[in-house]
Design a protein around this nucleic acid. Structure first.
Lengths: 350, 350
DNA sequence: GTGAAAGCGCTAACAG
DNA sequence: CTGTTAGCGCTTTCAC
């Protein structure tokens, strides 16, 4: 491992610059009250530059107790591969953590496998903070971490209500936005509105969107029909399958829990020879980048993945610096973006 | 930072177990010839368990010189947010590095920003190896790293031919697969075949696919027409824009450089009132998970992102262990998956 | 079989 | 203002 040979240490820089390691450390770290004469400063800087010196990260971590890295936990990571929303969050997280001077360590958790794998990272002092996407209801470690004041920010709504007042998170009001999306369909005159979730029943986010759908129905005085609800599982494929079942129940519209699943739903409808939105109207959720280019362009609830990531990092940064963040919950706006799949435009023409 | 308080060190485990730190280290690391009596072993293990001991990663790194983490460099990271292929690679990489016992450190590089940001990671001994996705032609650091025998595996074809015989990579034969995709259209009787690339002209992968397209045309005795080629930029939106221009040139088919861009291309065609594949046939590239659920289902070149990731990690692992890997290039298969957008099924019926 | 001691590269009191 | 020194927590010879 040639990585090993040419270790350039601060000692070498010191020797080359004709000073001690302390001075090198002071100069390179811009220690406030060191008061190093400009001439020495320059000498050190030049020596470091010429040698291509980069401080050994491990040594720095060991002594400082800081790792300057953020752990990113993605549960149900298999969804990363099929869904278009999570990658956007990931991008945003990466961008902003980098800008804040932190590295991002990716920890993916698959289905049943040890949900506490990330605990190793924090126990081993390998990360300074944690961002969690897709909280799992069965994860007992996370609440514990929060209780111990380890810096954690959750993306999405953490429904362990027991400790909800202690955890920091960036989320959307999913119930309300799902209600609005459903109401949009209701306002268009639909009575038989189906719902395809984006993930299994035991996911929090699924429950919230489902609840919003239910409330909208209630408020419109329409009874909830269990057989108009089917469960997806992040992929377009799951939406396709779910919709095939639903087709027999003859809905006139369907509210889909996310856009990727909606792609499958639309395919099922179209392959059954029905038109969107004339025969069946669709509203999705997320507003993934391809949503405007589907046929027809998808009406959907916009959730800004980029905003989620940015806000999460900003919050986590404060937490890692030991600040007390009073505003523990940040909610992002979720406007309904009207395109063609809901039929609102046709409706308007009439 | 409560992370700090309850540091449990090997010393504490040693004390609790009534042995020395050396013994603890031996037991916990399963040192071969330590010959520790079972009774002591158990005592140590129990003490460690009870205390919830996890070795300090930094200290371990410092002394061992190993970080057990892999750096993942994604250039043009903004594409992560819009394209469906890279996330799949990412998922696979994460999965397999985890299985191999490595952490994944994500380093995204945006457009013009310092392309050598990842060099800090290797110079600072923060990673043991590197996986690079989306190699940039203007990246001079990478060849240097390879020359110095730092473990690097590239996903995609690295066209710095100068050092091509020294670098390890997992790729596909893009020229050949693009040729085959185009030929498929040619075999269906198309004469005016357009091409929309998935990224700007100066990207290697773009050039390869473009070249495959050109060769297929040549072999069919059809002249290359520059105005039948337009450039996309990863997103569906860019495909939409590109195709709008191309529409005026009246192609009867188009080969698109990737599926996400193809979504935009299809939208442009359909919004212009033309049918796919009857009026214009489409072949994509990548076979993203939603490809079968587009309308119409997309005929495309299948590139297994999962395979790429898995092979890359396997290769890198050997490299990091100091093994000499003779098979420096691994090529993955890229079959053309026939669905509806190319019109082959219609054709067959005639 | 187990412990003492050295040292990985760095930072930060504390002297000088 | 700069150098000496003492660890951070761990692994690993080398003695006992």
């Amino acid at each position: 491992m040639s990585n090993r040979n040419k270790r350039i240490t601060s000692q070498q820089v010191a020797t080359k610059a004709g000073v001690s390691r302390t001075t090198v450390s002071f100069v390179l770290n811009n220690v406030p009250n060191a008061n190093i004469p400009e001439s020495t400063r320059v000498k050190v800087l030049e020596a470091a530059e010429e040698l291509g010196y980069v401080p050994n990260a491990a040594a720095k971590m060991l002594v400082s107790g800081e790792t300057r890295t953020i752990g990113l936990v993605i549960s149900h990571a298999e969804h990363l591969a099929v869904d278009a929303f999570i990658p956007q969050v990931l991008y945003s997280l990466s961008k902003h953590s980098q800008e804040a001077g932190y590295n991002l360590l990716l920890e993916t958790v698959r289905d049943v496998s040890a949900p506490d794998a990330y605990m190793q990272l924090v126990r081993g002092h390998q990360i300074d903070g944690l961002v969690v996407v897709n909280t799992r209801s069965d994860d007992s470690q996370l609440p514990e971490l929060v209780r111990k004041n380890f810096p954690v920010v959750i993306i999405g709504f953490p429904n362990w209500t027991a400790i909800a007042d202690n955890v920091h998170y960036v989320a959307t009001n999913a119930i309300e936005s799902a209600r609005l999306a459903t109401k949009h369909l209701l306002d268009l005159g639909h009575q038989r509105i189906a719902h395809v979730t984006f993930s299994p029943e035991n996911y929090f986010a699924t429950q919230d969107r489902h609840q919003g759908y239910t409330i909208a129905l209630e408020q419109a005085g329409i009874g909830y029909k269990k057989n108009l609800v089917a469960y997806g599982n992040y992929s377009a494929e799951s939406g396709f399958v779910a919709m095939q079942t639903l087709l027999a129940r003859k809905p006139s519209a369907v509210f889909v829990g996310n856009d990727t699943v909606a792609i499958g739903v639309m395919a099922a409808i179209q392959q059954a020879g029905k038109r969107i939105p004339e025969d069946i109207a669709i509203v999705g959720y997320d507003d993934i980048p391809t949503a405007p280019y589907l046929s027809p362009p998808l009406t959907t609830v916009r959730v800004s993945a980029l905003e989620h990531g940015q806000k999460a990092i900003a919050m986590l940064e404060k937490l890692m610096q030991g600040e007390t963040v009073l505003e523990k919950a940040i909610y992002c706006q979720t406007p309904v973006i009207i395109r063609d799949s809901c039929g609102a435009k046709l409706h308007a023409k009439k």
